[in-house]
Design a protein around this nucleic acid. Sequence first.
DNA 1: TCAACAGAGAGTTCTATAACAGTCTCCCTA
DNA 2: TAGGGAGACTGTTATAGAACTCTCTGTTGA
Lengths: 251, 251
Amino acid sequence: MTPDAGHEARYRAIAADLAAKIRSGHYAPGEALPPQRELSASYGVTLMTLRQALRQLSDERLIVQQPGRGTFVAPPHLAYQLDSLRSLVDDLRKQGHDVRTAVAGRAVRRAPARIAAELRLRPGETALRLERVREFGGRPAVHQVSWVRRPVADRIRDRDFTVVSLYTALADAGVTVARASEVVRPGLLDPSAARHLHEPPGSPVLLSARITYTLDATPVVSDHATILGSMMEIRTERAATGLSLTWGATS
Amino acid sequence: MTPDAGHEARYRAIAADLAAKIRSGHYAPGEALPPQRELSASYGVTLMTLRQALRQLSDERLIVQQPGRGTFVAPPHLAYQLDSLRSLVDDLRKQGHDVRTAVAGRAVRRAPARIAAELRLRPGETALRLERVREFGGRPAVHQVSWVRRPVADRIRDRDFTVVSLYTALADAGVTVARASEVVRPGLLDPSAARHLHEPPGSPVLLSARITYTLDATPVVSDHATILGSMMEIRTERAATGLSLTWGATS
DNA sequence: TCAACAGAGAGTTCTATAACAGTCTCCCTA
DNA sequence: TAGGGAGACTGTTATAGAACTCTCTGTTGA
């Protein structure tokens, strides 16, 4: 009686059915699914079994469950808390490295054209420019320039970014980060970043460009980071849920 | 009665306890944990509850569950099927790119010291050296040198690698790939690879070093790839299953 | 000697029931 | 009119019991 006909588990079949309905638009993004008890009844299944199906959908980030409120279809791209450079710092700290952040510049000024395009600013509109240098093991390793859109920028510009991460400050200011996209390319160290990183221009580096969006798809932060190749590397390892990407210090 | 004292769920407390015992070495890697029913009894908890704890550990890749056999402490790194350069080719093909592979060299010869160390070869032992150039859009983009350990190498050396991927050939030869670890670093194009890639030496590139292991932790393949920075980039995006890493052609 | 069978023991899935903990609304009170 | 609390939701975590599949092993039979 347990597996239906072939030998697919009930909860997997239910998860697949719900996933199809979500993807087909039968349940719209942001909308609440029927309550768990109702769903379990309509599928003729126990609450526990239905919850196993929901857990799978939750693992796939298709739904979001909120205690006391309901189960909601996730927006096209889903909320998460940390950006990858934040997790870089976390990873290194876990490995016992001493990671420090120095603020090399902080000013509200007119954004250059490329940044304005990324943040969808009107021509001439100003934004907060935050320039930081991350160092670990006593040596500078990452040079990072972030542009933050107003009016969000006005709420966080007085924070101490040597202690607080940009994303923590955003969260404190009530800004919910929805998603981020990042592109990493190899490149050569340019002279201006070279001054901060104490390496000769032309050294191999990783160039990261990241744009972070809020829930309503507004770009809030544009990040351009230069990561020293001599200090950093990307390690990838295949695990069950796919590819895991971690940053690590070069040994 | 539900949450213990404060308000931590039982299954979380159990998961934390088991995780601590695994990390402390109380349960050694590869060793089987006590049966679920035994564990549930010793924690004074239901099978369902204990299984929730195990599921969490499984999500964290700390244990591996095998139906009919037992629950085992995971080795430091875990199993997977595909290598990331394989998925590179797949990704590009899905994007409609024409990906071609040319074999620039194939010979059984004595492995250099660094490779011998990676594959744990005895001094003077020979291996299959496979040199390939991947090109898409009609331009060479990746230069790749793979060393395959014997005796596996003898079983695949006559395959046509312009059509068959190395990993497909390995699978056909009955070699089960267990895991692979890869390190990607930025670098500068060296002269020998520059000849194959038709780019000036010193251009920014990604250097990938990957070692692939079989189930019994024997290293079988050592890969060193040079990926042109002008042609390739790494895009990361927080999406459904967490961090997804994809390779893409530079537009 | 070797192959096939049966059973024990492992993980897996499901049913049925109950209680716990947030969240929201509405009605009653001050 | 404002405040507070009860109750009806929501998801969450737990109980107990049973049937199922897969793997291994020991025994039986040819």
